[in-house]
C-alpha cells in the first residue's frame, strides 16, 4: 500500500459520559475500499461523524493525506475532498435529480452565494456525466421526492462524487435496497474507487456485499476495534464469528 488518504488515531467519543467509541484507529489508502462492520450501536456511524466533521472527537485525531483535520467542519472537509452519504438518506427532496448534482457542482465551484443567474443552467453536462456514472442519467428530470429508496442512495452517491472526493464515506449505502441492487451499487462504488483512486470507507450490514467488495474489513464492537484484516481472515476469525457474525453468515445478513 502506498500513501494513506485517511488515518485516524485513538478516536474517542462520549455521549453523556458513555463511551460510544473508545480509541479507534483506522486508515484507508487511495483506491482501497475498507468496510467498517459491527452490530447495531457498535459506533460505526459515530466514527463516520467524527471523520466527516459532523461530530468533534473527545480524543484522538484524523489526518487527511497527512494533514491534521480533526474537528474541522464538514464543509471544510468537503473542500479538502471528503464526500459522504448518510445512514438516514437525505437528498434535496424539493429538487430534481439533476439539480441535486448541479447544486453540489455549483458549491464546488464556489457559486452558491450568487443570487443571480439560473442554477440549473450551470454544469448541466457535468451533472449528467456524474449521473451517468451512477446510472441515473435517465432519471435526471424527476423530482427527488418521488424516487425509490435505492435511487435516493444513488443520488447521494452522485452528490458525493460531484465533489470529486479523495475519501468517500458511505454509511450503509445499500440499506433498504433489494439484494440484487445492493451488490450492484457497491460494485459501482468499488469500481469508481479503483478507477479514480478514491479511498472508500463504508459500513454495511449485508455480509455478501462486504465480503464481495471490501479490500479490508474492520470489526467494531461496543466502540472498540475487535479485529481487522482482509475478508478471508475476518471470515475465519473465531472471535468475530462468536460475537458478531454467527449464524448471520448463512443468511448473508446480520439483521
Amino acid at each position: 500500500m502506498i500513501e494513506k488518504v485517511l488515518e485516524a488515531e485513538g478516536l474517542v467519543k462520549r455521549f453523556q459520559g458513555v463511551e460510544a467509541v473508545r480509541g479507534v484507529n483506522l486508515s484507508v489508502a487511495a483506491g482501497e475500499a475498507v468496510a467498517l462492520i459491527g452490530p447495531n450501536g457498535a459506533g460505526k456511524t459515530t466514527c463516520f461523524n467524527m471523520i466527516g466533521g459532523q461530530l468533534k472527537p473527545d480524543a484522538g485525531c484524523a489526518r487527511l493525506e497527512g494533514a491534521d483535520v480533526t474537528g474541522m467542519t464538514p464543509r471544510r472537509l468537503w473542500r479538502r475532498g471528503v464526500g459522504r452519504t448518510f445512514q438516514i438518506t437525505a437528498a434535496f427532496a424539493s429538487m430534481t435529480v439533476r439539480e441535486n448534482v448541479q447544486l453540489a457542482l455549483n458549491a464546488k465551484a464556489g457559486r452558491v452565494g450568487r443570487v443571480f443567474g439560473r442554477m440549473s443552467a450551470a454544469f448541466r453536462a457535468e451533472a449528467d456525466a456524474v449521473l451517468d456514472r451512477v446510472g441515473m442519467r435517465f432519471e435526471a428530470d424527476r423530482p427527488c421526492a418521488i424516487l425509490a429508496y435505492g435511487d435516493l442512495k444513488r443520488i447521494e452517491l452522485a452528490i458525493a462524487l460531484a465533489g470529486s472526493p479523495k475519501l468517500l464515506l458511505m454509511d450503509e449505502p445499500t440499506a433498504g435496497m433489494a439484494p440484487g441492487e445492493r451488490v450492484q451499487l457497491m460494485a459501482l462504488a468499488a469500481s469508481l474507487a479503483k478507477r479514480d483512486g478514491i479511498a472508500v470507507l463504508f459500513t454495511e450490514h449485508d455480509m455478501d456485499v462486504v465480503f464481495a467488495h471490501a479490500d479490508r474489513i474492520i470489526v467494531l464492537d461496543r466502540g472498540s476495534v475487535l479485529a481487522e484484516g482482509p475478508p478471508d481472515k475476518i471470515k475465519a476469525d473465531p472471535i468475530v464469528r462468536a460475537v458478531y457474525l454467527g449464524a448471520g453468515l448463512a443468511s448473508g445478513t446480520v439483521r
Partner: peptide, 13 residues
C-alpha cells in the same frame, strides 16, 4: 431546508 446535514457535507455553509 431539505437536508441541512447533506448540504453542509456538500460544501454549503
Amino acid at each position: 431546508r431539505d437536508a441541512p446535514r447533506r448540504a453542509e457535507a456538500s460544501g454549503i455553509d
